[in-house]
Amino acid sequence: MPFAQTENLNIAAFDRMPSPEEITAHVPLTDTAAKVVLEGRQTLQAILDRKDPRIFVVVGPCSIHDPVAGLDYARRLKKLADEVSDTLVLIMRVYFEKPRTSTGWKGYINDPHMDDSFRIDEGMEKARRFLLDVNEAGLPAGTEALDPIAPQYYGDLISWTAIGARTSESQTHREMASGLSTPVGFKNGTDGSLDAAVNGILSASHPHSFLGINAQGQSSVIRTRGNAYGHVVLRGGGGRPNYDTVSVSLAEKALTKAKLPANIVIDCSHANSWKNPEYQPLVMRDVAHQIREGNQTIVGLMIESNIEAGSQPIPEDLSQLRYGCSVTDACVDWSTTENMIRATRDILRDVLPKRSAA
């Protein structure tokens, strides 16, 4: 008598996914891009080590859905980055994976055609090509690591990585972070608590062994060395922001108690702006003045920004999409972004060198 089937009962299909090696062969790393990636990582490490007094700013769309508009944004950002480089280091926010509370568009990799066709094989190659273009334009890129396999496909093109509020507590993501080649920012939990982020940094700083894939797409036991450049990202939560001086002081104490470097990044969006992009400039100005008035631990900022302000639903007819406007969280527009970054540069330009010596 045959055994009853006991596995894959809810699986509709197994579609072959090209290996990281195959995708990379189609979109190879260039010398120009490699130089930008490595210089971006080294600069961020120097900031976290307090060898570089500048502040880094991860700025860009909530998510990438249109590579043409995304590259348009990148070229604008590169010009601005050069203008403020004496004070600020700009990293383009390039997010391809969107965690959903229930349902919704999961991002450019998962559904690049935005029609529920879920061509992840195409999305991964398109995402890698976009990252290559951004780095070729001279901008280092930052992203959120959501799928633990995805970094094998494009991690060589990333300079900074975030672990999101929903995944900072996840053992899988802590293990992954321990092997990433970039500095990693762990966000506080959606309830505003710091424990998950602090414990995530601690965990990721140690070696781990876990299941994953290698460049050939084979199941492998991945053994990591640990990541020495974990830091906390304050993004608010639990119905309140946490960029204020009291919240920053509490974060400093939590990191010191855990015997971790007191490196703090402030996310001007999400709960820190009550998900209202119009408040992001106010958050950024407040944080800049904290630094000007003597704060020694804030090393970075995050901004959700796009060419056009606000957000839009995904229409059935994709030709109706507004150019350069977010399809996920609402963003500030390009003009506001320029004003925010230039104002922050003006506030900090004469104080950061003294801060370095403190």
Rank of each mutant, 00 (worst) to 15 (best):
E293V: 00
S219K: 14
T224S: 04
D244K: 04
V221M: 15
I222L: 15
S203L: 03
G185L: 10
A215E: 13
N242P: 01
Y243L: 07
A215N: 11
L202W: 02
Q216M: 13
M302D: 02
A288C: 11
G226T: 09
G239M: 12
L301A: 09
I222P: 06
V232I: 15
Y279T: 05
L250T: 12
V232A: 12
A228T: 01
V283H: 06
N227W: 11
H208S: 08
I222R: 07
G310V: 08
V283P: 02
G239L: 13
G294T: 11
K259P: 00
N188F: 05
A288P: 01
G226Q: 07
D244S: 05
T190A: 08
V233F: 10
V221P: 04
S249N: 13
G230Y: 12
H208Q: 08
H206I: 02
R292K: 15
Y279Q: 12
A258M: 02
N295M: 05
N188K: 11
I222T: 12
I264A: 06
G189I: 02
P261V: 12
N263I: 03
L255P: 03
G230P: 12
M284A: 15
A288F: 01
P261C: 07
I222F: 11
T190W: 01
W274G: 09
V184L: 05
R292P: 00
G294Y: 08
N199R: 15
V233Q: 09
V232K: 01
I266C: 05
S249V: 00
N214Q: 05
G212C: 10
I303G: 04
I213A: 07
G236V: 01
K187S: 07
V299C: 14
D286H: 12
N242A: 03
T190N: 02
N295G: 02
D286C: 11
K275M: 07
D286L: 04
M284R: 09
K187N: 08
P281G: 06
F186L: 14
P241I: 00
G189E: 03
M284F: 09
V248H: 01
V299L: 09
G239N: 13
N263Q: 12
Q290G: 02
N242Y: 04
F210C: 10
I222C: 10
V248I: 15
A262V: 14
V184W: 00
N272L: 04
S311R: 15
Y229C: 07
Q280H: 04
G200K: 05
G294M: 09
R240K: 15
S205V: 07
I298Y: 01
I291G: 02
G200N: 08
A271Y: 00
N214K: 03
S209E: 15
L301N: 05
I213M: 11
V246F: 12
E252V: 15
I222V: 15
N214Y: 03
A254R: 11
L250H: 14
L250M: 14
S311C: 13
F210Q: 12
P277N: 04
V184H: 00
N306F: 14
R292T: 04
S269V: 04
D191K: 11
T190R: 06
G192Q: 03
Y243K: 05
A258Q: 01
A258E: 02
N276G: 00
G226D: 09
H206R: 15
N188Y: 10
L250I: 10
I264F: 08
G237S: 07
